[in-house]
Design a protein around this nucleic acid. Sequence first.
DNA 1: CAGCATCCAGCTTGATACTG
DNA 2: CAGTATCAAGCTGGATGCTG
Lengths: 133, 133
Amino acid sequence: MTSTEQRPEGQELPFNVFAKACPSRDTLEHVTGRWGALTLGALYEGSLRFNELRRRVDGVSEKMLSQTLHALERDGLVLREAQPTNPPRVDYELTPLGREVAERLLSLIRYVEGSMDAVLQARDRYDATRGAR
Amino acid sequence: MTSTEQRPEGQELPFNVFAKACPSRDTLEHVTGRWGALTLGALYEGSLRFNELRRRVDGVSEKMLSQTLHALERDGLVLREAQPTNPPRVDYELTPLGREVAERLLSLIRYVEGSMDAVLQARDRYDATRGAR
DNA sequence: CAGCATCCAGCTTGATACTG
DNA sequence: CAGTATCAAGCTGGATGCTG
């Protein structure tokens, strides 16, 4: 859809998350990490400023949000736009690549959210079977 | 597809990962955590035994794999089947719910893998802009 | 407002050793 | 084979204080 190059089917992918040393593992972690996932999810709705994001992503600290945004920006998933005003105003938004990633991530998130009834039931069953814990 | 209950569109979801206290956040972490994601990905191909999984998920320790499998089993995503033989044989496989989750997760993983060229280029640009680091 | 630098408690993780 | 138990170490991440 965007200009990102997905390889044709049938060709062996050079990047493989299952391999310990593959850089795709790092990127996957930036994307799926606690704060990365929520940040991408929040930005999917539209661009947000730093403190707006902070409020949207319940529980994130200044440091972690800053760190998360840097990693996502570096990976080309998030775009940082600073206006040279005073007081400063900085907007964050998804790049086209970021949108594609966020879409797939949100599909997963929504599915998990929608399955929580089943998950909670499974937990009850599991806990019931093995006494406490 | 399976018997998992996805709610109809347009209805407010009771579970929301963006809220700090929501249990869906925990499940999402089990699913997207470093070892959770790779374990689900590996099991998507078919059922595997403990040590097969360990070899497939490059770099996982015995302890982490065990811990990961427990969490996924408790959430109802993975099924543990122990044969009472000697030596013991235990097979792990995805539940129907686990398959649905893994499918969405793999869509994300494959997209990230396929975008690594772009990601690596973005990193170079980013690093070039701000001197070292 | 939008951050960065520092400090440090504690949780996560990896080794290692042991069990059924 | 399929794990559990234990322990040290290192990294994560929160609190605090400061800058532009």
